[in-house]
Amino acid sequence: MLTIKNLHVKLEDEDKQILKGVDLTVEAGKVHAIMGPNGSGKSTLSYVLSGRDGYEVTDGTATLEGEDLLGMEPEERASAGLFLAFQYPVEIPGVGNMTFLRTAMNAQRKARGEEEVSAGDFLKLVREKAKALKIDAEMLKRPVNVGFSGGEKKRNEILQMAMLEPKMCILDETDSGLDVDAMKLVADGVNALRDAGRGFLVITHYQRLLDHIRPDVVHIMADGRIVKTGGPELALEVEQNGYADILAEVA
């Protein structure tokens, strides 16, 4: 599904190398988790994959089902099936949540040469998905993320994911700022989307999200590289001993 090879990335405006050769393959149907200390490059990886400005790829490749991601505009990546659940979902005053969702859905469909969704079908679908995430009609009517609590913003991200049905989902610290109940709700939303055709990359600091979203593979990232890969037990090891042991081991 997602194949990253030897990815090197630096900041555009500064001579600062952030990613120093990332190799990673996420297969369809699998959940991969990336853990790592602050500043290891986890979020940069998610931004570079989704096409955010400010980064320069100096070497390496990233492909989604064989298609070169790095050469695409952000909207093309989305239409190709990539979805990034933002660590800090953006507030957009004046743009209604529903308008935003429908515009996004139809833009993706149009880009793929598919029929646009009708107003009626869209409404039915969004109500159904919102209900599962305990997002009420009032929230749907409000401007995108404006006045939402931290938990509401994250649930709204998952709602977008559920509506857009991407092939490859990247969750960037989706657990940050969530209480236990909200985390459960978000995890349920993610788990509901798990299927044989979809890949997940879950970026997190902590193991607790992974109690709810059980990963198949866990990677440890440090200083711009993946330094260790293992099964779910690796996350538990981090939880118990911190990163120091692992980093010492690979150094």
């Binding site: 989704s50 096409g51 955010r52 400005d53 505009e73 952000p74 909207e75 990546r77 989305a78 239409s79 990034l84 933002f86 979902p89 953006v90 507030e91 957009i92 743009v95 935003f100 515009t103 996004a104 859905m105 833009a107 993706q108 880009a111 995108v144 977008q160 857009l164």
Partner: peptide, 16 residues
């Protein structure tokens, strides 16, 4: 630009 990127990351073309 942040809002613009957010919209684009959801598949909305830059102009739209």
């Amino acid at each position: 630009e942040t809002a613009l990127f957010y919209l684009r990351a959801r598949g909305v073309p830059r102009e739209t």
